[in-house]
Amino acid sequence: MHLHDFWFLLIAVLWIGYFFLEGFDFGIGVLTRTLAKDRTERRVLINTIGPVWDGNEVWMITAAGSTFAAFPDWYATLFSGFYLPLLAVLVCLIVRGVAFEYRHKRPEERWQRNWEWAIFWCSLLPAFLWGVAFADIVRGVPIGPDKNFTGGVLDLFSPYALLGGLFTVVLFTFHGAVFAALKTVGDIRHRARAHALRYGAGAVVLGASFLAWTQAAYGLSLIHRPSSRWSRCSGRWPSPGPGGRAGRSPCPG
């Protein structure tokens, strides 16, 4: 194993850890509007992730830092290419983090209500945008010879990427509901279970369609033949699709 394989694996592990952990944080944030019926229930939900959210967020900070150190080109292209979506994610993470810490610092109802809305939107949006971004990474985006992103912001929001974003939202919400069922008691727990079942079913359907699409459009053929890699380079690939230009081509040169 080369050093870059190791770093790639490490970064993969960090992102997996991040989505695994911050995923249910985002889910809880979404559930504050779909599961919680009143302010007490919202508070209960937010309290379940109170001790863990910032520890979870560190996984992303570390993933980004490792990418910077190990793959400067990847880091530079990705972060400058996905400029506006990342800006939105950053703003959401800032507002959300501050909301968790400041919401209970004043007793006024309006103060708390505003922060609660901030928690909802700033959980929903990153959950969606991370899905879009990773779908784009899988699918490939137009990249010029100087390794800079050459598309516009709309190129990032293809139907495939939108499906990816929707999938992560539902998946994270499912995870959040399971977490809520684990951490709460009483009525809200029963409803969290019911929600988990529904979101779980939705996540399975969306995940299956997303994977099927990925396989059909961008995957290797199901029965891997040695010749398939070559044949993809000889003109059968890239298949037509929005934004499918450079970047994802596995062919040398």
């Binding site: 980004a64 983090g97 810490e101």
Partner: peptide
């Protein structure tokens, strides 16, 4: 809390 969240921006904007 503010130090952490504003620090994420610092890390991201090198790439952005």
């Amino acid at each position: 809390a503010m130090g952490v969240v504003t620090g994420i921006v610092q890390e991201f904007q090198f790439g952005m």
